[in-house]
């Protein structure tokens, strides 16, 4: 009986087992997950000093939920994330439908590069550039400007999984639909779209998470009345560590974790190769 499923007895000819790798990986996951777990644990600490555990308490969550600022920040976050993710996913789906096809046309590579731009450039740069752009045009900073900024950087996050899904689809299926007397419009609604739905939902959820978690763009493009949860948390953190922050942070973590699990669940078969194995 082996307790560690990854290890077999040391055997020098085995290409699958290398000394030290298991330990390194275990240390890596401890490094990645311990801080998050400690944060969540401390959010249930009844003590105000935050670091020393004295007992279990839900007080900080109760306080967080009854804080008007937090409630309004949460509302803002949800409004921005919903509008931005739905708009970005719509734009991305339309573009992916055309970009995923095999035909080459002038500027296709360039267009793909443009779609990748928002995730290639460090966020601070387009954030301040857009700030200057909106200011020059005399826009009032607020929910509107934040939403526009979010739509732009959400596009690639929605675009990539949808295009991947489209490219993974068998082009013969469209031909089969045509062979069975479907016109192109019918073929799209009855054959292509139903297959694409998991990809679209996956992209939508990813865009939603990215928007919900964003700090930099929101910080620079925001104004009065557009405070989101990350902005609010940032403000609190700068003034000091409090158990309330731990509680809100933990809630944000759990929200992201459940959403990303949902997204990966929805998009899971896009990684599945056709054929046995």
């Amino acid at each position: 009986m082996r307790l560690n499923p990854f290890r077999s007895r040391a055997f020098p000819g085995d290409a699958r087992h290398w000394p030290g790798l298991f330990t390194a990986t275990a240390a890596f996951f401890a490094y990645v997950y311990l801080p998050i777990l400690i944060l969540i644990a401390l959010s249930f600490n009844e003590n105000r000093t935050v670091t020393i555990w004295t007992g279990f308490s839900l007080d900080w969550y109760r306080m967080a939920f009854s804080n008007r600022d937090i409630v309004s920040a949460t509302t803002n976050s949800l409004i921005i994330a919903s509008v931005a993710s739905v708009s970005a996913t719509t734009l991305a789906t339309l573009a992916a439908l055309r970009m995923a096809s095999n035909d080459r046309f002038l500027g296709k590579t360039g267009i793909n590069a443009v779609f990748a731009l928002p995730i290639t450039v460090p966020e601070i740069v387009p954030a301040v550039a857009t700030l200057m752009f909106f200011a020059s045009l005399g826009f009032t900073f607020g929910l509107g400007t934040v939403i526009i900024g979010h739509i732009v950087f959400c596009i690639p996050f929605a675009y990539l999984p949808i295009r991947a899904r489209l490219e993974g689809m068998d082009p013969k299926i469209g031909e089969a639909a045509a062979d069975l007397y479907a016109n192109p419009v019918q073929a799209f609604w009855r054959v292509t779209l139903p297959q694409l739905v998991p990809g679209i939902l996956s992209g939508l959820v990813l865009a939603f998470i990215i928007s919900l978690d964003d700090f930099v763009t929101t910080f620079f493009l925001g104004g009065a009345g557009s405070t989101t949860l990350p902005i609010y948390i940032f403000g609190l953190v700068r003034t000091g560590v409090t158990p309330e922050v731990n509680a809100i942070s933990s809630l944000m973590l759990l929200l992201s974790l459940s959403l990303v699990s949902l997204s990966l669940f929805l998009g899971r078969d896009q990684n599945r190769k056709t054929g046995p194995d």
Partner: peptide
């Protein structure tokens, strides 16, 4: 972890 809030993850290190 990539999909969790960057701000929160950094905040955890303050703790």
């Amino acid at each position: 972890p990539f999909w969790t809030n960057l701000l929160v993850r950094n905040y955890a290190w303050i703790l």
